[in-house]
């Protein structure tokens, strides 16, 4: 194995720790954004638009503040891991809290 290949070895423990931190931020913020959109009584596309804007905004903040604009140092494939891997999970959590607060308030 050449020296260059050794330099590409990744620490699986640190990869898992970073993923857990990202997941915590995304989980809690999407649930709160869902509550907010339910209180605002957003419907159909407006609600989903709020999710997309909020999700992208939070991810960009995460990259800026916690990753210090260098996500490559902390994630193997930053675009996929930050924006795509948890997308469906966060969308379902968002819809759950959105409909919950929508039904209570409305």
């Amino acid at each position: 194995m050449s020296e260059d290949m050794f330099s590409q070895v990744k620490s699986s423990t640190n990869i898992q720790i970073n993923k857990q931190r990202l997941l915590y931020v995304q989980d809690i913020t999407t649930l709160l954004f869902g509550l907010g959109s339910g209180i605002l009584q957003l419907e159909s596309l407006q609600g989903f638009a709020m999710f997309f804007i909020g999700f992208c905004f939070i991810n960009l903040l995460y990259i800026g503040i916690l990753c210090k604009f260098q996500p490559v140092k902390y994630y193997v494939n930053p675009l996929q891991e930050i924006f795509m891997d948890n997308f469906v999970r966060e969308l379902t959590g968002y819809v759950m809290s959105w409909t919950f607060s929508y039904a209570i308030v409305g």
Partner: peptide, 9 residues
């Protein structure tokens, strides 16, 4: 740093 560096080195 807030996150752990993933490079093994």
């Amino acid at each position: 740093e807030y996150l752990s560096n993933i490079q093994m080195s």
